[in-house]
Each structure stands twice: as structure tokens, then as C-alpha cells.
Write a protein that binds this DNA or RNA. Sequence first.
DNA 1: TCTGGGGTCCTAGGACCC
DNA 2: TCTGGGGTCCTAGGACCC
Length: 424
Amino acid sequence: MALVDCNNFYASCERIFNPVLEGQPVVVLSNNDGCIIARSEEAKQLGVKMGVPAFEIKSLLEKNNIAVFSTNYELYGDISQRVMTILAQFSPSLEIYSIDEAFLDLTGIRTDPDEFGKKIASTIRKWTGIPVTIGIAPTKTLAKLANHIAKEKGWWGLVLDPSREDTVDRWLQAIPVEEIWGIGPQFTTFLNRYHTLTACDLKKAPEKWVRQHLGVVGVRTVNELRGQPCYTVVNVPAERKGLCVSRSFGKTTTVYEELEQATTAFVATVAEKLRKQKSVAQALTIFVMTNRFAKGPHYVNGITVKLPVATNSTIEMIHHTVKALKKIYRKGYNYKKSGVIATEIIPENTLQCALWDDVDREKHKKITAIMDNINARMGKGKVKFAIQGTQRGWKMRQEKLSPAYTTRWDDLLTIDITKEIQDC
DNA sequence: TCTGGGGTCCTAGGACCC
DNA sequence: TCTGGGGTCCTAGGACCC
């Protein structure tokens, strides 16, 4: 089992097309330019912490001349795909675990793991410009830990060989429990209270006690630490159980129409995603909320509606969204965020007809197909429904957005070589 | 002034069934 | 006075992940 993890992924993506940033501190912000969500090694060294609001460390960023970027998901998603495509060439069994991580099943691979890992790392680096770290071990949890150790040491990767239990244990003794995959803040507090401080301590904890306090998930984690696999590489991604699109607004609004424009735009994206994966939803949850950090009256509310017929039609979903929104909207609040969650998702082809169905589904299908087509060719959001509005007063702040170098023709990198030619 | 977004799995308890 | 035993399904909430 190998875990390949891209180093400081978003920051590394920004560097690909901006090589002057090599060796320089770089950070990437969350939506609305809110929090720090990625940091280059140099930024970490300067004490920039993960997840802190950017405004809190404004002077730190400025003083150290740290390059700051708005999140550019379009770019990162595309680079991710390229990395995963390359990884797929190394093993027939690949699980894309997140945008910057993948597990590889190494069963049947004859090459020495050390050599194999190095080869993967150098290939990704060469072909995409993204540096990666690789952890190799008998279980996912141990591969994660191996990866963690290698990252801390600045190595290409690390192979944890289970036949050398003493060496494995020595590594585990150096790792605090909170670094273990599956051990979060709550479990850490609990374990530390009982003097279980390191990965090695947890590995040796009695199963009954673990079962009682950390549940079956905890037992699996312990077994995995002991080298007994509880999780396998999942090749084909399971069907999504829910699909959520929600955003905080660039600025709050009290106006119903603005809330409606934003929320119908979100549901349009939900429907589009459903169509893309050829599935339909049977229920829809619509929610709104005020700024949880702000003073003043707070309001959070949501409604789940069962759809009369499972659907992925934007038209139909907008209809239900507006109805729900009108029910939960209360005048006088400063709305900061809204969202739409599709649930009870099933494949499109299992669609059942309702007895009384006055929706012309064939027509909806044609319209949405045409819209999807245009938007795929001309750019996202080129054609949309009137209710989504054109003002986008709610749209998120992205003041430091880099170009979508690899996915938009207009953003293609141009290099001016006239000077070089003249110099010749 | 400014504080992200999108997921998974497990468990306990209630409603209901025979 | 005395009041079984065994299920299922659903939901909300908690814990975790990136």
C-alpha cells in the first residue's frame, strides 16, 4: 500500500506557472479570501498557521512579503487530474482519496518499494511540476504515518517494513496520537487523559478499552497500526450520498431577491453536477444563515423537500428551491450564507414515473442538455436562468486570483520573447 | 470591514412492527 | 400486584477526513 500526497498542493500549483515563487513563501486563501488553507514550506517556517483568518495575520503576511493567492479551484482541479492520470500508470488499483492524495495498491508489483516510490515521485515532479511525498506500508493508516514522517524529514518518502517491527515501533513512538489518521481532537484529549500519547501507545492499547471508548472505528485504527489491514484500496468511487453546494457571500444581504439569486445559482450547480454523473435526487435541502461570528441577531434555518419525482432538472429544482426559500426567509436578518443539498441520489436510469406528473421531462432534458453543452464550451455560467440574476452582488471576494492557466483559452500563459530575439 | 466548503461513517434513541 | 422478546427503519448528532 502506498499513499502519494502532493506537498502543499495549492501553493505548489500556484508555483508551476510562476517559477519566481520557488523558494519564496506562498499561501492560498479559502473562499472569500477568508482563511489560510495552504502554505508553502517557507510560509510554515514563518509561523503562518493553517486555518487562521487572513485579516488576523495581515501584518505577518506583509512584513515577510508572503505571496498571497485567492483559491483557484479550477486550476487545482485540473492539475490534480493530471497527477492522478500519471499515478494510474503505476498501479492498476488506484484510489483517489482527495484532490491531492491517492492510495495505490502495490500487490503484485515486483519492483523494490524504495525504487518504485522514488520513480513515482520523480515522474510526477517532472511531468507536472508538483512535488509529492510517498508513504509505503502494509496498511493505509501506516502508509499515512510513513508519509507524515517523510514529510517532516523532507524525504521523498518512507517505506515501513512490517518484518522489522522494532524499527516500526521506534517510528511510532515518535508520533503523537493526534497525527494518526482517524484520531481527531476529541479522541486525542481522551487518549492523553489516559496517558496514551504516542502511536505506539495506542497500538498497544487493549482492544476492549478501545472498543468501549473509541468505537469500532477506533478498533480498526488500532488494528491498522498493528499491520492488519481494515481498509482496502477502493478503485471505483462509491455513489455520492449527498451533493452540497453552498457559499458564504462576499457581503451580507437582507434582500430576499439577492438571497434567491445566490441560492438558485447554487441549485443550478447541484443539478449540473447530478447530470454530469448521470444521477437524480429524490430530496433537496435548502438552508440559509446569518454570519455566526457577527454580533446581532442570528438566524439559521433549512427545509428538506421530497421531490415528487427524482430529478436533475435545473428548472424543476429551482422551482422547489424558490418555494422553500420563501418559507424560511425572514425579513430583517443579515444573510451571510446559503446552500442546497441534494440527497437520496440514485442513478438516472432507475427513474420511476409518478402517477400525476405534469412536468414535461423530455423538454427539460433537451433544454438542460443544450445549456450544459454551451457552458462546457464557452465557460461556466455563460447561459443561466433569469432568476439567478446578473448582478451577483453576493459573489465571493477573490482579489488575488491567479489565471486558470490550463483550462481557459483566455488565461493561457503568454511569453514575450521579443526582447530575447532582439538580444540575439 | 474581513472568519471555507464538501464529504464519510457510526451510534443512540424513538417509532413502529409482530 | 403482575406487563416479553425480538426485530426494522429513520433521524439527529457526533466524530472524523481533506
